[in-house]
Amino acid sequence: MLLTENENHINYQRIEEAIQYLEKNFQRQPELDEIAEKVHLSPFHFQRIFTEWAGISPKRFLQFLTVDFLKTKLEQSRNLVEAAEAAGLSSQSRVYDLFTTLEGVTPQEYKLHGTGIHVRYGLHETPFGICLLGTTERGICWLSFLATDEDPKTQIEAMKEHWHNSVFHQDQTLTATFVERIFNPVASSQTGRLHVFVKGTNFQLKVWEALLKIPMGNVLTYQGIAEKIQNPNALQAVGSAVGSNHIAYLIPCHRVIRKDGILGEYRWDPVRKKSIIGWEMAKVKQP
């Protein structure tokens, strides 16, 4: 059962506050005591919860979010994706650590706006705050993050609007198993692939499939995605498709950044995007 005062949720809010404070004061490199005071924790407690969350210290974490580092990462990511594609489709899952497959609704289902589809959903804690997850027999069909103090009904209504002729049932037990697999890459790799079931245009599906090929801990530009779908002039359309993704994190639209190394906007809050990218990079760097 979801608890509004869950300790994990409170900890993530403090981590977000710390990341924002570190960024604003990056030039003068604030000490741990100062950051901890800002988020109303003792230095020891703050260091502990941040290290448990990210696996590294706050200062090292912030290094992953600097413009210079991200520019270098863009080049590395582009080369990695190209090398994987040259190796052939059969080896992609191993190279990308890819455990997600994508299926789109049929044209007839698209016209019917979800008629005949049964969606089971639940609200759960994640490393990035509370999420709403919806799933059908054909795969996960919705994943969104709640803003701080947001009424869950807002996200539930957004999900129902997207699949508005479907039948909805809350099922915390079922959705909890998916949340564990999504945010625990080891668990996911040991239990087979996750499937996502999406409603979108053919162009959007091409973009979302390209997003699935960005390895964890890496980033690409909007231009890079446009080139991957062989439509290099469709930057604005690519940006729109990335922004309309309705399965957060699992279809990793957070891994798309601007070519100047700026992380840019994110449907579920730009600070959360920074948190996710830094967290993923930290996990990949761990032995």
Rank of each mutant, 00 (worst) to 15 (best):
I251M: 03
H164I: 06
A86N: 10
E75K: 15
Q29W: 04
E161P: 03
I117W: 04
T154I: 13
L2E: 08
I251K: 00
A234I: 00
L74M: 02
Y249P: 01
K160L: 06
T177P: 00
K153R: 14
F69H: 14
H124D: 03
L220V: 12
K160E: 15
I19K: 02
L32N: 05
W163P: 00
H124R: 05
Q27Y: 10
Y249C: 03
D97L: 14
K273G: 03
V256G: 01
R255A: 11
L211N: 00
N218C: 14
H113I: 10
Q13W: 10
A84D: 07
E265R: 13
P270F: 10
E7N: 06
G224H: 04
Q170T: 08
G134C: 06
L263C: 04
E75D: 13
R14G: 02
I140S: 06
A83P: 00
H9E: 15
I251Q: 00
E209H: 09
I229R: 03
L263W: 03
L250D: 01
S144C: 11
D171W: 07
D149T: 08
H113S: 11
V119P: 00
I262E: 15
R60S: 08
I251C: 08
R78D: 14
G261I: 09
R60N: 13
Y121A: 00
L89K: 10
H246R: 14
F46T: 04
Q20L: 11
T106L: 08
S240Q: 14
L143P: 00
Y249V: 13
R14Y: 06
G264D: 08
R78E: 15
S42C: 03
A18L: 09
Y12S: 10
H254T: 06
A237T: 08
R138A: 12
S93N: 11
S93K: 12
S244G: 08
H246V: 12
F64H: 10
L133R: 01
F69W: 11
N25S: 09
L74A: 01
Y21G: 02
E280K: 04
L2R: 13
Q76H: 13
D171P: 02
T126L: 04
E103Y: 07
F61N: 02
S275H: 14
P287N: 15
Y222K: 04
A241M: 05
L65R: 00
T173G: 06
P58V: 07
S144Q: 11
H164N: 15
I156T: 11
C131V: 15
N25W: 10
H246I: 11
Q172G: 00
Q155T: 05
Y249G: 01
F46H: 06
S244R: 13
V284I: 15
L220C: 04
E17L: 11
I257K: 01
T115K: 15
Q223F: 06
R258L: 13
N165S: 09
Q230Y: 13
Q170S: 12
K228Q: 15
E5G: 11
R181W: 01
V242W: 03
H169D: 12
L133V: 14
L112M: 14
N8F: 09
V284W: 05
